[in-house]
Design a protein around this nucleic acid. Structure first.
Lengths: 350, 350
DNA sequence: ACATTTGAGGAAACCCTTTTCCTTGATTGC
DNA sequence: GCAATCAAGGAAAAGGGTTTCCTCAAATGT
């Protein structure tokens, strides 16, 4: 049948039992207070001209009945639902979760409820969720990605504001907020240099990842600004995991035995490197200083020694996305990518 | 003022600009198709008696206009919102996230949208969220906890069904779904015994945690059934982290040098144990077999060797919670705690 | 003493969709 | 030929709030 409709409700002319839970409505409150519904509404919302005694009588009645206005009825009238959709493409949630929670926090404070939509990177599911959000008349959408690679913009079924968090939109028309990985990487490398290290290597993730490229570029640029060259002569691209960290750090030691610091593209890589270094008898930070990226606490603090690393402040990112979305909903829309600063967290590995 | 009301809408008689995005309503569809709104509704929902040509004409108009029925208006009428609240007390989300995503998946398939509510373990915030959910007229609530310790039941502001996931409710009236940690631990220990190990130690988390107690009890019982006694003479309670795993395993080796297996209460503990064993020259699983709990992939697969561990199937747990909630919404409520089986994942450490 | 303002609150429209009931014209039954 | 059925679709109510407009009485102005 038509695509633009749902046929979910099965009429249940008999099937489902009567809900049997008659919610209390403003009519009940009005009746108890002995006023009309219009008056009750005004009393509860501090509108109109009412005697103070009437207001309190209505308030008492509302409290007594445990009345909560039906948000859907209000929305129907006001044209705003005071809800937003939180769409994540990240099934595992390691990066998008903090963003989502930050956004939820900021929005909840503004009395806005959030719909959680997990697309699992599946376009069909994404479309499905967007249609549902359209039906629910959300006021806006935040799209949180797993990585920082730019993503195709939402093919919109609705004309509500969208803010992209973490993974910016490929379209410059859209508004995106993303971590300033360049600044973060830069700060980490400067920190290593300031600690007196001069032969610094960089081990990072797959070369096809935006994050790898940005961090590596910042690494190279910062070294060059200090008149230094990368240890081992090049950036080592591989995987984001520990085995790669272990493997790559051995390669670095072999290629440049006097290497005195390693900047890793992730905490997992750094942890692998730390383990490997310890096993070949190199001390951290004595012989070799080590810095990671992500401040993933289970990695960074379980690392021996605890890891100096770059924190992308993902919760802040989510909050910022929420603030931007609220502005856009309010008509004050921006566009382009807004980069939020990363924070260097210094621990014992440097 | 009254607690049972909100005064959010600030009247915006002038402040906010006109929304200027006139959503298409069924009246627009009806007008375009040249029928009344009632007929349009029937056409779109396959109700009533209409000519096939009329139906398709309406469907065309709907498609052309990109019409999506306003879910809030439907809900207002049907008395069901087709939404549920997902309340998590778990800020970091390591355990509750998979549960939430599983629930979201199961509910989304049923055309139900979910409100995400993060209480961060704060009672005020919880209350706040519950009130919001009441206003939104959710059809039900799933409460996901971080740990498996029983939790106080929701002091309800609404009379909708609630299902507790992970952390069961302390009230037997309520319905809870939780992982069968006992069975999981049991299976892990049996697996170790079947592999020919006879001097098995158990290192786990804080004694005050329900999980520690249940797993330790299962450990003891299973050993006893096989006529064995715990290596090191007792269960070692500590923390859930790696340092404790490293420390405790040394204690075990000292107390019982012929220990040939360690069952750990978490993958983090197991990983710490693995590192520590390797450092003192004991091979895994050659000298000592090692099993963990959680199947936290970043721990279990990064462990050297990859860890045999118990998977609590949290996604399934979330899905089950969703199914139970849908049943309860439909009037088929259950009560008590339903335990879902854990799965032993066998890798190289045993 | 009369017109006008003000205070307090009621009646009804409105938001969007579904559903019930009703109307109209055509067909069938006898 | 007339009552009864049926197909097709329209009109209106309902759902729960908010807001606009209106009414009524009391107070004020002159």
């Amino acid at each position: 049948m038509s695509d633009s409709q749902g046929s979910r409700r099965e009429a249940r002319p008999d099937g489902g039992r009567a809900p049997a839970r008659p919610r209390v409505t403003i009519a009940d409150v009005a009746a108890l207070a002995g006023v009309s519904v219009g008056t009750a509404s005004k009393a509860l919302n501090n509108r109109g001209k009412l005697r103070e005694e009437t207001r309190s009588r209505v308030a008492d009645a509302a409290r007594q009945l445990g009345f909560r206005p039906n948000e859907m009825a209000r929305s129907l009238l006001s044209g705003r639902s005071f809800t937003v959709g939180l769409v994540t493409t990240d099934h595992v949630g390691r990066f998008s979760l903090p963003v989502l929670l930050g956004a939820e926090d900021a929005l909840g404070a503004g009395e806005i409820s959030v719909f959680l939509c997990d697309t699992r990177g599946d376009a069909i599911r994404e479309r499905h969720h967007l249609q549902a959000l359209a039906s629910r008349r959300v006021d806006g959408i935040i799209v949180a990605g797993r990585r920082t690679d730019p993503r195709p913009p939402l093919r919109q079924f609705l004309d509500v504001p969208v803010v992209y968090a973490m993974a910016p939109s490929q379209s410059a028309q859209d508004l995106s907020v993303a971590p300033d990985e360049e600044q973060g990487a830069c700060e980490a490398v400067r920190h290593l240099i300031a600690a007196g290290r001069s032969r610094i290597a960089h081990i990072t993730g797959p070369a096809r990842h935006h994050s790898s490229q940005v961090r590596a570029a910042a690494f190279r640029r910062t070294l060059a600004e200090a008149g230094l060259a990368p240890a081992a002569g090049k950036v080592l691209y591989g995987e984001w995991n520990e085995p790669w960290g272990r493997q790559a750090v051995q390669h670095v030691l072999h290629a440049d035995p006097r290497c005195d610091a390693v900047f890793c593209g992730s905490d997992q890589i750094a942890r692998g490197a730390a383990d490997s270094l310890r096993e070949v008898g190199r001390t951290v930070p004595g012989d070799i200083a080590l810095a990671g990226f992500d401040n993933w606490d289970v990695m960074a603090t379980a690392c021996r020694p605890p890891l100096t690393t770059v924190d992308m402040a993902l919760g802040e990112l989510g909050r910022a996305a929420a603030v931007r979305l609220l502005e856009a909903i309010d008509g004050r829309a921006r566009s382009g990518v807004e980069y939020l600063p990363c924070r260097l967290v210094i621990r014992d590995s440097t």
